[in-house]
Nucleic acid binder design. Structure first.
Length: 507
RNA sequence: GCUCCCUUCGUCUAUCGGUUAGGACGCGAGAUUUUCAUUCUUGAAAGAGGGGUUCGAUUCCCCUAGGGAGCGCCA
């Protein structure tokens, strides 16, 4: 007998960006569904109307699409289903599984404060749970509370956490309908998951206690409880919960920094899950191997160095055309002035998009944003970037580093040399450049091979070490002491620009 | 404070009670090299502490310590 295909869902609230932790949760859900021929649904938890706005929702859909996590059907708006949620609340009331509560927020807060002061659990026991409806004040709009069991315990059977048991006395009667008649999150989630036919709820552990309470709603309605998998949280490098202080929180930040979706997926899936010693896994392998039963319980720290390594690997694996397409795709998202203005914690890892922005300020200050940079490359010729790509991609961890490496192609002249490059251009170097320029100028063909032969011939004739010739040349051509191989630089820069930059430095 | 969860190299992790505790990132050394990188070789690096159970515990149980999450008419 085969198990029915699972239905999972990702249910973010519209915060304005797809949180990196949420992205991993979505990835786990997606992989689980993909591996079992199931469905991956998307629901936007937008019942809080103050927070709800279309752009915030769009940002999340955008992030998921970029990561390649496609969902089945249309995204469901939780808010749009409020009538159905109210209907269930009323049903619960009729069944005697819920009751009207006339306690005011002030009363509730006071009771909580008192409990805190006395060191008791901060739960609120409504006095209206057992009172006659006839006693109800006419002038107060009540909330509807779930009549949760007071005795015994509620157990959550979880694929990650195991069996977790909560004493019912520690779970208060949660409000399912606000006094304004609107449903609350916990009710909405249960009703939606039930109505959408969700079989497996895979979400962050921060929802574990909610699950206990939600279980009571399922029980109140006589509905089947779905399977659960509460995945551990992702922390920053310092072990604290990921926050703004850590820098990048949303997946769009990772896109901006030049990470590849495939690399980010490979990195994220290894946080809390593994398959033996495997590190680099194809999407097909992940789909085949992933299982919620293999997820670990402990939280993990985000490590940019490892992400960088994976991204570098996938960049090297990518074809030159793919990388070109990725670059063109990401450029419109970059605003260099904004990146330069970004305040980043000195302890946070450096961002390659910010580094690129600063490099641009040094080499081509007239370029303001990604579109302007794209236009420059367009003028210089994307084919040149393509030609340089094999050399570029083997020394880049991110697409931004790829761009930084290609920047010499569009730098403003005269080139501003950085400190290390300046030091390379001493009197000897000037002599070398003046002597070398005419010999390159007469090269039959302007290719890396021909130019290398010419430079090697020069160094042999003069007895100068190749490095003594190549380094000043590199500095003159790129303004930097490190770059792709100089002969490649010469080739893609072209005869005219190369000779001009050599001349400017030799002078 | 109350409830629940976690704890193997710096980090991510492997280990179905018996291993020289493995891999990856990072770090160190070396080789290749026009710089940087790539690639290859190689080194250092871990079972939080204390009790049990057992012939034998990283693995099972308890306690302590440390960390995390939750405790809204937010989601």
């Amino acid at each position: 007998m085969t198990k029915a295909a699972p239905v999972v869902r990702f249910a973010p609230s519209p915060t304005g960006y797809l949180h990196i932790g949420g992205a991993r949760t979505a990835l786990f859900n997606w992989l689980y569904a993909q591996g079992r021929g199931g469905k991956f649904l998307l629901r936007i938890e937008d019942t809080d109307r103050e927070r709800n706005n279309p752009e915030a929702v769009a940002a999340i859909l955008d992030g998921l699409n970029w990561l390649g996590l496609t969902w089945d059907g249309d995204a469901v708006s939780q808010f749009a289903r409020a009538d159905r949620h109210r209907e269930v609340a009323l049903d619960l009331l009729r069944r005697g599984a819920a009751y009207h509560c006339y306690s005011s927020p002030d009363e509730i807060n006071a009771a909580r404060e008192a409990a805190k002061a006395e060191g008791r659990p901060q739960i609120f026991l409504s006095p209206w749970r057992d009172r006659e409806p006839a006693d109800a004040p006419k002038d107060i709009k009540p909330t509807v509370r779930l009549k949760a069991p007071r005795d015994g315990e509620t157990t959550v059977s979880d694929h990650v956490q195991g069996r977790v048991t909560f004493p019912n006395k520690d779970l208060d009667d949660l409000i399912i309908l606000r006094s304004d008649g609107n449903p609350t999150y916990n009710l909405a989630v249960v009703v939606d998951d039930h109505d959408m036919g969700v079989t497996h709820v895979v979400r962050g552990v921060d929802h574990l206690t909610n699950t206990a309470r939600q279980t009571q709603i399922y029980q109140g309605m006589g509905w089947d409880v779905p399977e659960f998998a509460h995945v551990p949280l992702i922390h920053g490098a310092d072990g604290a919960k990921l926050s703004k202080r850590h820098g990048a929180q949303g997946v769009e930040d990772y896109r901006s920094m030049g990470y590849l979706p495939v690399a980010l997926r490979n990195y994220l899936v290894r946080l809390g899950w593994s398959h033996g010693d495997d590190e680099i896994m194809s999407t097909e392998q992940l789909i085949e191997w992933f299982d919620i039963d293999d997820i670990n319980k402990s939280a993990s720290r985000f490590d940019f160095k490892k992400l960088d390594d994976l991204n570098g690997h996938y960049i090297r694996q990518s074809t030159d055309d793919e990388l070109l397409a990725r670059i063109k795709d990401m450029l419109p998202h970059l605003d260099f002035a904004a990146l330069r203005a970004l305040e980043i914690d000195p302890k946070a890892p450096p961002r390659s998009d910010v580094a690129l922005a600063h490099e641009i300020a040094a080499l081509a200050p007239s370029i303001a944003n990604g579109s302007a940079l794209a236009a420059r490359f367009e003028t210089a010729g994307w084919d040149k970037v393509r030609t340089a790509m094999p050399a570029l991609k083997e020394r880049a961890k991110t697409l931004c580093e790829l761009l930084t490496g290609a920047l010499f192609l569009v730098a403003d002249e005269p080139l501003k040399l950085d400190d290390k490059a300046s030091k390379l251009i001493d009197a000897d170097a000037r002599t070398t450049l003046s002597a070398l320029a005419p010999r390159l100028a007469v090269a039959d063909v302007w290719t890396a091979e021909a130019l290398e032969a010419a430079v090697r011939a020069y160094s042999e004739e003069t007895g100068a070490k190749l490095g003594k010739v190549a380094q000043p040349l590199r500095a003159a051509l790129t303004g930097r002491a490190v770059s792709p191989p100089v002969f490649t630089v010469l080739e893609v820069l072209g005869r005219e620009k190369s000779l001009e930059r050599m001349k400017l430095c030799a002078a």
